[in-house]
């Protein structure tokens, strides 16, 4: 039963990848490529598509494989499969942790992690910028090219947001900013 197989394979992928995102690529290669659902080349093409479309990579790849194999119902099974383990584990943990929420040690432990979390987010942002500005966006293995247009557009938007905040004392509307970015993209690239 192909629907059950799609659900099962993506359930396993969801259950056994920590950190999400591209951490699941090795598992996808061993489970999905080996079944002939996608070729290695097409997988890496899709990673590029996933970079420019919103949402978590895990959801994108599950929906894509499911749809390419069995249409809408296939996409639904694969996506449900990849989301469900997270959902169940987190709900269980949330109910357990509620009992410990007053614990001094829990809040102490969280305090210890805060700088680490900020450094994890910072490193992602820095690597994303380095890859986009100097390596054509995909990986550090790609040839080194300075993408002047992208850097210039980034600086223009960044400057605009900073000035807006200084002048109006509030943040520029996020969605508005992204729509303006898309229009700029169509003009300059």
């Amino acid at each position: 039963m192909i629907f059950l197989e799609l659900f099962g394979v993506f359930f396993l992928i969801g259950l056994f990848t920590f950190g999400g995102g591209y951490a699941m690529i090795p598992l996808i290669e061993s489970q999905v490529v080996s079944r002939g659902w996608i070729s290695t080349d097409a997988l890496y093409d899709f990673i590029a598509v996933s970079e420019v479309t919103p949402g978590p990579f895990a959801i994108n790849i599950a929906t894509f494989i499911g749809s390419s194999q069995q249409g809408f119902l296939g996409a639904l099974c694969a996506t449900l499969g990849v989301v469900l383990p997270s959902f169940i584990v987190i709900l269980l943990l949330a109910t357990i942790l509620r009992k410990f929420s007053k614990s001094k040690y829990l809040s102490g432990a969280i305090d210890g992690v805060k700088p680490i979390i900020i450094s994890l987010i910072s490193s992602t942002v820095i690597m994303l910028m380095v890859k986009t500005f100097f390596f054509g966006g995909s990986s550090l293995q790609s040839p080194f090219v300075i993408d002047r247009t992208t850097i210039a557009l980034f600086l223009i938007i960044f400057g605009f947001v900073l000035i807006y905040k200084k002048v109006f004392k509030k943040d520029f509307n996020t969605i508005g900013m992204l729509i303006i970015s898309a229009i700029f993209g169509l003009i300059v690239f």
């Binding site: 420019v52 987010i121 942002v125 966006g137 303006i180 993209g185």
Partner: peptide, 17 residues
């Protein structure tokens, strides 16, 4: 692809701030 490349610049600004 062009529109998405533009959006990506906006996203990086958002993340950085």
């Amino acid at each position: 692809m062009k529109a998405f490349s533009g959006i990506k610049c906006g996203i990086m600004v958002l993340l950085l701030t």
